[in-house]
Amino acid sequence: MSEAGTSEIAPAPAAEPGLGDYVLLLKPRVMSLVVFTAAVGLFVAPGHLHPLEAVAAILFIALGAGAAGALNMWWDADIDALMRRTRLRPVPAGRVAPGEALAVGLGLAGLAVMMLGLAANWVAAGLLAFTIFFYAVVYTMWLKRSTPQNIVIGGAAGAFPPVIGWAAATGTMPLEAWAMFALVFLWTPPQCWALALFTRSDYADARVPMLTVTHGRRAARAHVLAYTIVLALVSLAIAALPIGGPVYLAAALILNARFLRGAWRVWRRDEAAAEADRHAAERGFFRLSLLYLFLHFGAILAQRLAGPLVAGSWG
């Protein structure tokens, strides 16, 4: 009756996952940020990797990030189902079984760490393993549901890729690598809080203690401005490091001026004004934050490429 390939087969079950569902499980948008920052860390480091080793290292760092994303989706399926922004993800939507997401996450994590160790070195592989653990266990399982500082501490997971990239190229983790870590680490909270400001009740519905829920929206706006000021100072200080220079400083000055202006606009508004224009300033700040980080790492890369012409770290 239900022979394969005939028109008599019953409609497909909603749980039958397609390739796209597995790709979504790996959080490809987050992965794109990881790939770019890790590639910049790897490229600006004074290492000597063969181009194929470099490509493989970036690929396995990205795969590790994807594994962490799958583990996050496995654990967070219950709260993802409650939030408009996340309820269509493969696990809460019922397209991928939770156990399958766990298996994909664990399998890819092991593969990514092992292969990064073989392709580059075990310092980078160890750091990748720690990053996956930090994101999946420390952030997802512990901090996210227990403290409004979740995104501050958990943001470290997203900040490790440039350090891993640097370690893959050199086997070391000097100050320059940690400066790039600091850039992403301080960038994450204002970006996430801006998102929380315009996604409104999502986090409250899911009982996730975001700052907007526990301390109110006014406090979140103040934190956005405070973190942006500290971020700007760190960003400008990087210009004095060996990875900095005039090209980087010019870009950092422009980007920070715009980012500070955006944070100021978010801070000075009250809820009535935000509701009136449907959180235009918060949405604009969020979009700008993505550009800010991308262009910052682009500037570090440009400084490295322009090194022989425009002295890196001022010659």
């Binding site: 390939g5 028109s7 087969i9 409609p11 497909a12 079950p13 039958e16 397609g18 390739l19 597995y22």
Partner: peptide, 14 residues
């Protein structure tokens, strides 16, 4: 009639 079902197309793609 051996029409390929959507389920099989999805499996093939995967």
């Amino acid at each position: 009639v051996r029409a390929t079902h959507e389920l099989h197309r999805r499996r093939l793609g995967r």
